[in-house]
Structure formats: structure tokens, C-alpha cells
Amino acid sequence: MSRSLVSMSRRLLSVDKASNWRCYCSSSPPKETLFVGGLSWSVDEKSMKDAFSSFGEVTEVRIMYDKETGRSRGFGFVKFSKGGDARSAKDAMDGKEFVGRPLRISFAHDKVRGVPVVVPHIRHV
């Protein structure tokens, strides 16, 4: 870690020790990828792409499957070519029913491997 980053972290931590806050030191979430939770087991990539294509160009759809059973784990990801299209899709589809179940949609976060994520939590003194 660079000295300037360590110095900045120390200054931020010493600003107000009585405050309760968290600092996530990771890259910002990609604004064009959505996490889609609450999927029915019968949903496939094609039906998901069809549902989200009305908001813009969908470049990738991934549904996560259980390795042992091969059944959907109930969530997936939709990637748009433009962040504005992803925002529109999130606003319109979050909480809406899709194949009998309400969707939970948020912006996806990068999966960080091998890099520690610093999350200091300061308690009230």
C-alpha cells in the first residue's frame, strides 16, 4: 500500500472517532451490470435477456447455477452496453413480478479475489 493511501486512511480515521461509519476500499461498482435476485427456477438466460432488452442493449446475461444439482440458485447478472440503460432497467424492474416472483435488483459489485477489503468500523466511545 502506498504511503499516501496509508496517510489518507489515518487522517480519515482520526477525523471523528465518535462517528459510526464504514469505509469500503474497493473499486466502484460497474454501473452497467445489474444483480438480479429472486429469480424463479424456470427462468433461463433467453427469457431474462428478453425481459431486459426493452431498456437497452444487453451484452451479457448470466444465471448462477448450483454445481451439484444444476438448478438455478435464484440470482443472476445482466450487463448493459450503457450505464443509463442499466439505471432505467433497475428503476423499472426492481420489485416487479417476473415469472411469478418479485425481482430484487441492484448494481453489481466487482468480485475481488486475493485483495483484502478494508472495512473499519468505529464504535461510539
Results as ranks from 00 to 15, higher is better:
2 S>Y: 03
2 S>Q: 10
4 S>L: 14
5 L>K: 13
6 V>S: 14
7 S>H: 12
8 M>W: 08
9 S>E: 09
9 S>A: 14
9 S>Q: 10
11 R>T: 07
12 L>Y: 06
13 L>G: 11
19 S>Q: 12
20 N>D: 12
22 R>K: 11
25 C>W: 04
28 S>Y: 01
30 P>L: 03
33 T>A: 03
34 L>F: 04
36 V>D: 00
39 L>G: 02
40 S>P: 04
41 W>V: 08
43 V>P: 00
44 D>K: 03
46 K>F: 12
51 A>K: 11
51 A>I: 01
52 F>T: 03
53 S>Y: 05
54 S>T: 13
55 F>Q: 01
55 F>V: 06
56 G>P: 01
58 V>N: 00
59 T>C: 08
61 V>M: 06
61 V>I: 11
61 V>E: 05
64 M>H: 09
64 M>V: 13
64 M>K: 12
65 Y>R: 14
65 Y>F: 15
67 K>G: 09
70 G>F: 11
70 G>I: 15
71 R>A: 14
71 R>T: 09
71 R>V: 15
72 S>Q: 11
72 S>I: 07
72 S>P: 10
74 G>D: 12
74 G>N: 10
75 F>E: 05
75 F>P: 01
76 G>W: 04
76 G>V: 07
77 F>Y: 12
77 F>W: 09
78 V>T: 05
78 V>M: 09
79 K>H: 09
79 K>F: 06
79 K>L: 11
80 F>S: 06
80 F>I: 06
82 K>F: 07
87 R>M: 06
87 R>A: 09
88 S>T: 04
89 A>W: 03
93 M>P: 02
93 M>A: 01
94 D>L: 03
97 E>W: 06
103 L>K: 00
103 L>V: 06
104 R>C: 04
104 R>Q: 10
107 F>Y: 07
107 F>Q: 02
108 A>W: 07
110 D>A: 05
111 K>W: 03
115 V>A: 08
117 V>P: 12
118 V>G: 02
119 V>R: 14
120 P>G: 08
120 P>W: 05
121 H>I: 08
121 H>N: 10
123 R>G: 08
123 R>I: 08
125 V>A: 12
125 V>P: 15
